[in-house]
Design a protein around this nucleic acid. Structure first.
Lengths: 394, 394
DNA sequence: AAATCTTTATAATTTTTTTAAAAAGATTTG
DNA sequence: CAAATCTTTTTAAAAAAATTATAAAGATTT
């Protein structure tokens, strides 16, 4: 029985759907893949024989016969390596097909501006795979999220992580790891996570704001991630908006980023402390185990007045930027995600105030602002789904 | 021989493709409709028998056998009514299936804020159809472009053109005309025209700027018009950007529109003239047959220094707005269209200067700014294509 | 508990695509 | 300049998939 290219594609599509939705009935798979039920039935049976899929049990009754639901087999020995990088820390985890963690999150202190960052990264990944005791042929691939201008078709990051030998980043890693590698921008991945697993599920037009070191943006348009004609879409943090004339890292003045990045907020906090402001941050900052940005976010969560005031200023600026986005994109919702979304509820009032001030009411009322429920897991989950999206399962 | 719903759809798809591309071979139709050649061959033969399609001749050689190309039959007695409205003037034309004009453009002075505008509009359309000597069953439908917030699914314009009896605009017109009616926003139609017939052809991500009374925007995303989740996408002219604190018609201050609309440019010209500036506009404005905005544009085309200076100021502001759009959407090109694009070459330098000043070079260099070649025909052509897109041809 | 209703699962039919073969016509070469 | 080659279109036969119809399963109602 030979499997044609088309059949191959359908098998992969079915696995993808089950990966995103956990349990589905044959009818649901048929609708989602837009293929006929008989075709789905035979293909699913084939996948059951190959142990990719298992029966999970009956769906709740909807009045008539209850549907059998299907699940990806957690015992199938196929695994996915997910990596999420930020400026200073790299996290890695290994999932099975049922999105269960088979190797818990490991951390690596790695400055992505480091000359040897790429080599250190591949060593780290290889070592952890070894520690987990997995053979390479059991691993479907490695998905890596990272900041910077990432060209996903070429597999290059223009901003950082350039291999020392001048070679192609993805090729270098694929070679060093002996595995398929897929890289993407962190904000794009967070948007994908919200689309596939988070609050943007089943929505068509959603903007996902990645509040972190900078202010990233991932755009869901017509139910899919929009990347723009050369992959640079969503450069939200460098639109001309700020009233200050602080110089931005991009070389221009007036960028949104100069008022809204976590680094700026920390700098503002330190300045205020130096000027004698009272805050629990003066204690927290003494603990150098955690980054000051995390201490700052902790202070916000603990309702420290100074931290909240600083955060609110930044949030208002973000809100002003979002007002522009709402006019242009008319999204059904905007999701606040990324590590900064930990401070969720504290961010909302200032953002909503700015939107009310700068938006035409008729347009603004169509857009809801919601908080992510994934936060720290988002990027890792999406890194893994990158691998699933590109695998063929044969 | 019964035609199924699916077959119906394919017939319509083929006609649509021929409408947009004029002459196509069977293979090209097959590729564009993503249907197999045998299916296309039989369906096209059916349409030839029904006189919808005619053979046009052989395509130029590409090395092997030359392809037969097909065309929509200009003699098939099926017609399309196209209407383009602006604030003060409504234009109407009747095309055949080959996009040939069978009734030349007729003008109606109609203020769309007029209480009886809808009634006057339907009377005008009915009268012109009568003058043209066409029977209603020969007309496929009426496509109408208009300014304002248009809900195309409901067939309502929230900003203007509300029927006196409080009924639904499209239903009212369909009833009064006895024809299918399709309405859309003018800027959206201009974008569709550039996509289907203009410089955005075969491009995937393009922004089309409608320079006119206001500054409208139509967004082509992933090869199709993007409308946003509730149809309000592209509200470019009301993003907070202006340095002035002039009140905008939308009720807010700082909107882009307050610096860039043709009306503002005319007002600026009049102010300058009153203050003693020398310009050919002082002569032109005496002729009240044409609107001052047209005189202003004429002055620009004739290189009148004052007119060019005023236009350049506005263009710079538009360029600043476009810089934001480029960061967010990363389009492959931006098309300047609408009646203001008549002043095309005079607009470009200021716009490009602003983009260079406010864009990250890496992003800006991926976007080209181009001038429309359709200008005044754009909206009428797209109004007609609205009808083609919604007709079933049986 | 029987009847009804809703939904899933399987089978038969039709449609469509894929693959293969033939035909048409341009280009190349002796 | 004509035969051979090559490219592409067109038609025909085989395979795949989608529809449609039917049957089976099981919940809900009466």
């Amino acid at each position: 029985m030979t499997v044609t290219a088309k059949g191959q594609q359908l098998r992969a599509d079915i696995i993808k759907q089950l990966y995103y939705r956990k349990a589905l009935s044959l009818t649901e798979i048929s609708k989602r893949t837009k293929k006929s039920l008989p075709l789905i039935t035979t293909t699913v049976n084939m996948l059951i024989k190959e142990q990719y899929i298992i029966e999970q049990g009956l769906a709740p009754s909807t009045g008539g016969r209850r549907a059998q639901t299907f699940l990806l087999n957690p015992k199938k020995e196929k695994y996915v390596v997910a990596v999420a990088m930020d400026q200073l820390t790299t996290r890695m985890v290994i999932y099975n097909l049922a999105q269960e963690i088979v190797m818990p999150v490991k951390n690596l202190d790695l400055d992505i501006q480091d000359q040897d960052a790429v080599a250190k990264l591949s060593q780290f990944i290889n070592r952890q795979i070894e520690v987990a005791g997995l053979a390479k042929n059991q691993i479907l691939g490695v998905g890596i999220g990272m900041p910077g201008f990432v060209n996903i078709t070429e597999g290059i990051n223009y901003s950082c992580l350039k291999p020392a030998d001048g070679s192609n980043l993805r090729q270098y890693l694929a070679q060093a790891l002996g595995l398929p590698v897929h890289i993407d921008n962190d904000s794009s991945l967070i948007a994908l996570a919200e689309l596939n697993f988070g609050v943007a599920r089943d929505k068509k037009d959603v903007l996902v704001v990645n509040i972190g070191w900078g202010t990233g943006l991932g755009m869901i348009v017509n139910g899919g991630l929009y990347r723009g004609s050369s992959g640079y879409a969503g450069e939200f943090s460098h639109i001309p908006l700020s009233k200050t004339s602080n110089l931005c890292s991009c070389g221009k003045v007036g960028c949104l980023e100069v008022d809204t990045s976590l680094l700026v907020m920390v700098a503002n906090a330190e300045k205020a402390l130096a000027e004698g402001s009272v805050s629990i941050m003066s204690e927290l900052f003494k603990d150098e185990q955690k980054h000051k940005a995390d201490h700052f976010l902790d202070a916000v969560v603990k309702r420290d007045p100074l931290a909240i005031a600083i955060l609110s200023d930044a949030a208002f600026q973000i809100g002003k930027g979002l007002a522009t986005l709402i006019h242009i994109m008319n999204p059904e919702s905007i999701v606040l995600s990324g590590r900064g979304a930990k401070a969720g509820k504290m961010l909302l009032p200032a953002i909503e105030q700015a939107i009310n001030e700068f938006c035409i009411p008729r347009i603004a009322e169509k857009t809801t602002i919601v908080l992510s429920k994934l936060i720290e897991d988002a990027e890792l989950m999406a890194s893994a789904s990158l691998v699933i999206a590109h695998s063929l399962f044969n």
